[in-house]
Design a protein around this nucleic acid. Structure first.
Length: 547
RNA sequence: GGCCCGUUGGUCAAGCGGUUAAGACACCGGCCUCUCACGCCGGUAACACCAGUUCGAUUCUGGUACGGGUCACCA
């Protein structure tokens, strides 16, 4: 068999050599120890938590080592492509603070010298290596139709053999060059297959997350180029990560089972394998079965990154949440370094969990609460406003109309040694903050039943009569105590608890009533502080209607 | 079914032959207190199972069970 003639027949337009490619994409000049990583999303228009999870690892591994983190668009399946999907990926990553040093950019362009960064634009590059493999007898054209492959699979299933094209089932392996020529002239479509070896050898790969992984060596004649000349993931991965000089390949564990094909190709092409890092799959509890299962984009809205954006969970909270899943010592580190930037955390691949983590929304909320609790009021205001501008125009307007009051309100209890943690998400902030604005204020809770209507009226008139906006906290509370006593309520809640018959109620009921009139809720921050955020006019107006 | 990966409390997880088996979230008490939140103190709760190696197994080996992944001209 004349492999050179076959290669010319298959790739007449490919004139460059592998050496040309090596020269065009030379090894990167980077400091020792610098890592090069990437994410390779396919442009389906759907970015999910798993994408971000892997992106975070890649970003940390690269930037922690002063290396390069790039974006490569894996668009080899044109059936799945959605218009504008590349922009969606870039925007989502940008929103969550993941920045690329090079790679595809919006509007079809590239940034960096190892491009193009969209696989379909790299067709000619793949063909150089495809031709090279044909010349060496390691790849061949296959004319099997989908129907023929189905029939082979059925036969294999019936015989309890492994499915696939290999060994005696690889019917096009030894076609003569005349057969190939005739088939092509007859207009038959072909794919390029790798020529697998029948073997019972095992391969071992040192995975940076899992340690040593052993698998049977590849024996399949898997597809390198599809009938449109575009490579499959397997071929594209090997060529790209070699030429783009990736040092680490971070991807989900669903790729583990195709690792033998990749190892085979790296070997056949004589290239050094990158360090593989196969991450655990994010899981959730299936409501129907009660079991753990992989997050699915159809069933689980919380898988889509857009869910977190809509809920108003801040990017920092997502980072911290993912970091706690990624490295179990993160929480400990955070406790020891409460004010440090999370990017200062020394992230380590070897500390990664191997088993699939359940996405725990409770935990996320708790982290979010802490993250917002640590922020200065100005930052909280800015973050909230930014979210509102996209998802809640009413509050965006209010924040802009009352900037000082908003910051003051957000500062209630914030500067204390143990700051309040009232806000979990930007969405919930709209609810929590609504009483600070007349436009959104309303009474939500019921008056305490210990106070009858007449007493209530009496209380508010007495309160307003003695109210002095300039009173400090203790002077203010002393006045409340006096009125409480006059109305026959216990000034100390414990007294009422001990002798419930001697009082109509306790100061708790009185202050609750006041709190409801002022904020609409029985539960709210400190009345004195809130009053000062609202200002005397609003306070009086809200109380006068009940006096 | 073949191949591969995994299995410590409800969840995330420390642990790497001898521990009273950490910690965080959630939950339940209590304290603080004008409510709530915060904070503090305390509590419930776990090494899937069976063999083997060993003076001794959560930790090592084998098997079983269960869970997950993958077996495309999808990534």
């Amino acid at each position: 068999m004349d492999f050179n003639a076959l290669a010319e027949l298959l790739f007449p337009d490919t004139t460059e050599s592998p050496e040309d490619m090596e020269a065009r994409f030379p090894e990167r000049q980077l400091p020792a120890g610098a890592n090069v990583t990437r994410i390779g999303p396919s442009p389906t228009g759907f970015v999910h938590l798993g994408n971000l999870y892997n992106a975070l690892i890649g970003e940390r591994i690269a930037h922690q080592s002063n290396g390069v983190f790039y974006l490569r668009i894996e668009d080899t399946d044109n059936k799945r492509e959605v218009e504008g999907a590349v922009e969606t990926v870039i925007n989502a990553m940008n929103y969550f603070g993941v920045h690329f040093d090079e790679g595809a950019v919006a509007n079809g362009g590239d940034n960096g010298s190892y491009g193009p960064y969209r696989q379909r634009q790299r067709k000619a590059i793949y063909h150089v290596f495809a031709k090279h493999l044909v010349q060496r007898g390691l790849a061949y054209p296959c004319f099997l139709t989908a129907e023929e492959i189905d029939a082979i699979r059925e036969q294999q299933t019936a015989n309890k053999e492994n499915p696939g094209i290999y060994g005696k089932y690889a019917k096009c392996r030894d076609l003569s060059i005349d057969d190939v020529k005739a088939n092509i002239e007859a207009g038959k479509e072909w794919v390029l297959r790798y020529r697998g070896t029948e073997t019972d050898e095992y391969i071992a790969v040192e995975d940076a997350i899992r340690g040593k992984v052993e698998m049977p060596r590849n024996n399949m004649d898997f597809v390198l180029l599809k009938s449109d000349g575009i490579p499959t993931y397997h071929f594209a991965h090997v060529v790209d990560d070699h030429l783009m000089r990736s040092t680490h390949v971070i991807r989900g564990e669903e790729w583990l089972s195709s690792l033998p094909m990749h190892v085979e190709l790296f070997g056949a092409l004589g290239w050094k394998q990158p360090v593989y890092c196969h991450t655990a799959t994010l899981m959730k509890i299936d409501e129907e079965t009660g079991g753990k299962r992989k997050l699915s984009k159809r069933k689980d809205p919380e898988l889509a990154l857009s869910y977190y954006q809509q809920e108003g969970i801040s990017p920092d909270a997502i980072w911290e949440f993912l970091l706690t899943i990624l490295n179990s010592n993160y929480e400990e580190w955070r406790l020891a370094n409460p004010s440090a930037d999370y990017k200062d955390f020394p992230y380590s691949l070897s500390k990664m969990s191997i088993s699939g983590a359940l996405v725990d929304l409770d935990k996320l909320r708790n982290i979010s609460k802490d993250v917002i609790g640590r922020m200065p009021a100005e930052d909280v205001c800015a973050g909230w406003l930014k979210w509102c501008e996209e998802y809640c125009d009413e509050f965006a307007q209010l924040i802009k109309k009352y900037p000082e009051r908003t910051v003051a309100a957000l500062n209630v209890g914030r500067q204390a040694a143990k700051p309040r943690k009232d806000i979990e998400t930007w969405k919930q902030a709209c609810d929590f903050m609504s009483f600070y604005y007349d436009e959104t204020f309303s009474i939500k809770d019921q008056w305490p039943e210990e106070v009858d209507e007449a007493t209530r009226k009496l209380f508010f008139s007495k309160y307003l009569e003695s109210y002095d906006h300039s009173d400090d906290s203790s002077a203010w509370f002393d006045k409340v105590k006096v009125i409480t006593d006059e109305l026959g309520f216990a000034v100390k809640p414990k007294d009422f608890k001990k002798n419930p018959d001697q009082y109509k109620g306790s100061i708790v009921h009185i202050t609750n009533m006041l709190r409801i009139a002022l904020t609409g809720h029985a539960n709210a921050p400190d009345i004195h502080e809130v009053s000062h955020v609202l200002g005397e006019n609003i306070v009086r107006r809200r109380l006068e209607k009940w006096a």
